[in-house]
Write a protein that binds this DNA or RNA. Sequence first.
DNA 1: CTAACTTTCTTCGATATCGAAGGTAGTGAG
DNA 2: CTCACTACCTTCGATATCGAAGAAAGTTAG
Lengths: 386, 386
Amino acid sequence: MRTRDDGPAALVRLVASGHAESRADLARLSGLAPSSVSLRVEQLIDAGLFAEEGAGASRGGRRPRRLRLGREAGVFLAADLGAHHARLAIVDLAGTPLALSELACEIAVGPEGTLDSVIGHLRLLARDQGLAGLPVRGIGVGLPGPVDPATGQVVSPSRMPGWNDFPARDYLTERAGLPALVENDANLMAVGEHRHSWPGLDNLMVLKLGSGIGCGVIAEGRLHRGRGAAGDISHVRILSEATVDCSCGHPDCLEAHASGAALAAALAEQGITVDHPADIVDLVTNGVPQATSAVRNAGRLIGDVLTALVNFFNPDALVIGGSMSNAEPLISTIRGVIYERCLPLATRNLEISTSRTGRDASILGAGHLLLDSPLSNEWIEAAVKQ
Amino acid sequence: MRTRDDGPAALVRLVASGHAESRADLARLSGLAPSSVSLRVEQLIDAGLFAEEGAGASRGGRRPRRLRLGREAGVFLAADLGAHHARLAIVDLAGTPLALSELACEIAVGPEGTLDSVIGHLRLLARDQGLAGLPVRGIGVGLPGPVDPATGQVVSPSRMPGWNDFPARDYLTERAGLPALVENDANLMAVGEHRHSWPGLDNLMVLKLGSGIGCGVIAEGRLHRGRGAAGDISHVRILSEATVDCSCGHPDCLEAHASGAALAAALAEQGITVDHPADIVDLVTNGVPQATSAVRNAGRLIGDVLTALVNFFNPDALVIGGSMSNAEPLISTIRGVIYERCLPLATRNLEISTSRTGRDASILGAGHLLLDSPLSNEWIEAAVKQ
DNA sequence: CTAACTTTCTTCGATATCGAAGGTAGTGAG
DNA sequence: CTCACTACCTTCGATATCGAAGAAAGTTAG
């Protein structure tokens, strides 16, 4: 219960997501009466959250008066943090990036320093791009580790020294003075892919193959978090000839054999040096046999693990992103293993595809989650009230 | 959007589920104003769907006027079909079984014969138990095979010859003249366990270990169906010394090594005959070493498969039911493997338990799904309107 | 026992929503 | 061009919901 999604925020979401462009669309999709929609839209226009902009295309009758977000709707700050690097953006409520920037920052510096720097650079970015006049409605940050959805704390991150149990959400709320949201990066990526490129599909697995292996899960159209660790596939035990110990303490985890970092280590033993996972993709593209062979092997291991998960979760699509996803043989091997070994029932409608949304998926996901959050109901209602 | 769960049905669900006992409870849980609740409750009492029954316990102030379901609320028909056997029940909207019965029926007879027989026996059961005066509000049937949630058809069932692509839901609706619901039996069991015994936990994996291996999944409080095949864990490939071919065409599926049927076959080779999975439990309880050893081995295989799924899905609880779940060594082996090999983050709050709801879990699940279904909104609103 | 407080439920005027009807602005066929 | 039709949006009276205030029926403390 208590899921009454009436109120002005519902209309804002429909317009921001692009699902509705006119009062008539809003009436159809919200379930409210046309007359009520008109009244509320007028209030939203008065508040500056909506604006009218010419007319849309006719569908055989009077042309709709097109609605879009107004200036007062404002923007969100969004950041996607990696181990050595952050991607920053100002996005509008529709998720469109208005400004993008990159920032070199070591996450191992610790939470306070990193987050302060991110907030500072986001504020600078807004100023530099002439966006200072727009109200800022929230901040969303993606982190390369598990986040407890109940508390907004980082829990047991394997590659974020100094962050364990750090209350990242509360810290951001206070330091930025904004509604704040913290989420695992693969989860943000999953939300971004889902909303931006796979709107009709309600069950998605989104794999992030970079130096690590992450996975975000969309179940029944919503992000599945579990207790904060959902989507972990990197520490499944696999079969292999040589034994490799994983940082988690167990031997032969998937990550220890098939992640970008593991491939880099394996290639280094053969005298081929790579600094970054994307370099492996270059080697494969250039036809270096050791690289291709290593990538194929990784694809087989990942595919093996995924067969069980695809049978179990029965998604509509499996989307593969991250810096390794451009390695053709990796994707085709994974696809082959899954189609060969999964149940026909699980694969007959399954789409396996590389990311359609691209590098900004996590940024977009942060925007969508912020807008969907109950936090947004508050400022939207406050803006309308006066 | 369109998820506006106002309307009288919301109040009926709150009372039926036991979450609300008074007008004040309803106001708190539904989000409606106390005055609106009073008005609606009066209508529901007039319609006979609610009845007032004395006073509840005081919480430091005026005692609440206790509400319960009235006679006009009526009953659901529910059936849980196995391969050779069906469990039938009349349940009230709260899920309480008012009458129970068993029926020997071969599902291999085919859909029409089986379903006609089930409907007939349910009607007889109602008559025999003096429930003929109560309105029947729907019928729910659990089947031992995959059901497409979109169409209500059985799809690719491995043990239900003659049922492939049979439109079971439409057939039931027409033959019974009632709102009908068809669902996989493990899914019904999961819903029953969740609502009856694990109300606070929103992410559940419910294993059904009988002659086959089934699994129902509750994600974010709702049944996760995927495209109809979700929860399948029986056809994951496992490692084993001897190779056994599975009915699905692949070698070494979990089901071919660890299901009740597989254990029975393995014991038969050692000269021990068992007719039913429950017999294996008896052998284990009586300390027959071959049986205990076989069951331990099955537990290890099942646990291995589950580690990946528990890491991925990160449930609050793993519940094990079905006729094999009373074999102590099976459960303890599964528990041991999971706690040993899963991520600490996935197991720190994980409860692993045998079924708390018992044999009627599927029956209860059918009742809950029927009440939650939009089909129920219709008759509830119709009953109030006059 | 009395007085202060809590919780439950109802009353009643203010307000928000609905829905039917009608005005507005387009399309398309003859 | 005219006429029929469709879709979009608004007007307006009927209705449903809300929220504040109060009545009813308890509990608890002194």
